[in-house]
Design a protein around this nucleic acid. Structure first.
Lengths: 111, 111
DNA sequence: CTTGAACATGCCTTGACAAGTATATTCCCC
DNA sequence: GGGGAATATACTTGTCAAGGCATGTTCAAG
């Protein structure tokens, strides 16, 4: 199966997923929010579905789409080896706090 | 600038980044580890550099490449709205602990 | 200053994919 | 059961990017 990165290379598909993040939506709702033609929405949804990023259920003549988490999880895991790059100072802070753990605590600064 | 997702749609580029996650590497080192022709490596590195995903420094006749974190950070942030999908059970655990809040509390976790 | 190593760039071909347009399918409602 | 909404699919076309190959550039060493 195609990598989730390849699927999400398309801006419209990321937009669709972001809209679905809050709740499931019908094709028509996605269409009006994104302001792109309906066949495009359907085609993007097809790609997303075949990649396992969304799933649909039937509601009369409409289809309601919702997010499937697993491929996004894999991206999250792929990022793991890099995460220390931007949490390094936090790590350092935590080690620092650990080291002065016996002493009484003062204020800490963030970001 | 192109989205980092589009850049990472290419498997070889993800492989390069993964190799650079541990330490900076020269083009030749990347070439022999990935077993793809040198011009391909250079071209992928160019794309990665122009997208801000890596940067290079000169060491005599070699160029050493290393990861730049910021675009990866943005992907990490893009994932944020979805993260509750796979941490839901943790959330449930936390709510559970909150519900038995009358009992004495210990430490809380951040992140 | 010549040779060779390390890397970058240019050109060409080929394949993939998104957009647009038209048409097909499914199902509700009258 | 016929019409129209909601959605899917088919087909065509243009664009763009990756791969392959050849060549250019820079530098170190002798």
């Amino acid at each position: 199966m195609e990598s989730a990165f390849a699927i999400l290379a398309e801006p419209s598909r990321r937009a669709i997923l972001s809209l679905l993040a809050s709740s499931e939506q019908s094709v028509g709702e996605l269409e009006t929010q994104l302001r792109i033609p309906q066949p495009s929405v359907s085609k993007h949804l097809r790609v997303l579905r075949e990649a396992g990023l969304v799933e649909s259920r039937v509601d009369a003549q409409r289809r309601l789409y919702r997010v499937r988490a697993q491929p996004l999880m894999e991206i999250d895991e792929w990022l793991a080896p890099f995460r220390h790059f931007w949490t390094a100072h936090v790590d350092a802070l935590e080690r620092h706090l650990d080291r002065m753990d016996q002493a009484p605590r003062k204020k800490e600064k963030k970001r």
